[in-house]
Design a binder for these strands. Structure first.
Lengths: 143, 143
DNA sequence: CTCCGTGCAAACTTTTTGCAACGGG
DNA sequence: CCCGTTGCAAAAAGTTTGCACGGAG
């Protein structure tokens, strides 16, 4: 669990943007969460930042590839440090409360997936950027 | 491509709801689309129904398991006939325009996925209801 | 006759934007 | 100083709800 600050800082610099306290706080929070965090949690976790700043900073962080946005799940969007920072993994999504959790699938399955995805993409004229395998169900809390 | 009306009708009946013209139109449209359709398209495709009716009917259809809602993708939700009606498949999602398309993965891969998902679910305390494997990228139109 | 569904408008939630002020480089 | 960033408030986008009317069973 090495702090991603250096990488984020570099990405922001490259885009001529600053790594301000607010942004650092968001990255910190996402890093500690280790799963996609809903906007609501972000809002009241960092209550010192107005929501507009949070949204704006998340947009910036997304643009430089530091965070990934997952729309929908449970009404509002969730955010997580990007795969480029924390590596590829997939998500459990609770259909009841919208909570998301990380998990990993066996590497060889991941390989098969990748291959299948490429084949499909080629056939459909898609230019693939990645895949998302989410397991839907009820999380332990909602059982 | 057999019309799903009978099945939808039965599900609505069981819930003591009617299969009205508006609902039929929505099901028809979704059936013809063969892919998750964005709310916007639904709205101006069936301009004779006010948006509130469309939303309400989609809620009902979702509750009886006739349609599935995919939140997010491209800002607004997308809807598709449920897997119980049209069988399991996965989706391509264009990260540029939000368009979704259906596709199928090889059955044996689907089997491996299912097995892996069950294992994960057990380990995480999830009660799984299904999985979604989406390929993200740029669709042919947005290239 | 009785409900369920409809239509319209208004409310609500989530996300984005305008603009003036602030502050680090 | 300059320009990116902040804070506040207002607006836009997406979705839900209240209520009276109309139509199917």
């Amino acid at each position: 669990m090495t702090a991603p600050h250096a990488e984020v800082w570099e990405r922001l610099s490259r885009a001529q943007q600053r790594y301000t306290a607010g942004r650092r706080a968001l990255v910190e929070l996402l890093h500690k969460a280790g799963r996609p965090v809903g906007i609501v949690e972000l809002l009241d976790a960092s209550s010192r930042l107005p929501q507009s700043s949070i949204y704006r900073n998340l947009v910036v962080l997304e643009q430089v590839g530091a965070v990934t946005r997952y729309p929908g799940a449970g009404g509002s969007a969730h955010y997580e440090l990007s795969e480029e920072l924390v590596g590829h993994h997939d998500h459990l999504v609770c259909s009841n409360c919208g909570r998301m959790e990380d998990y990993d699938v066996p590497p060889e399955l991941e390989g098969d997936l990748h291959a299948a995805m490429d084949a499909i993409a080629a056939r459909k004229g898609f230019k693939p950027t990645g895949h998302r395998l989410q397991l839907t169900g009820r999380c332990a809390r909602c059982t």
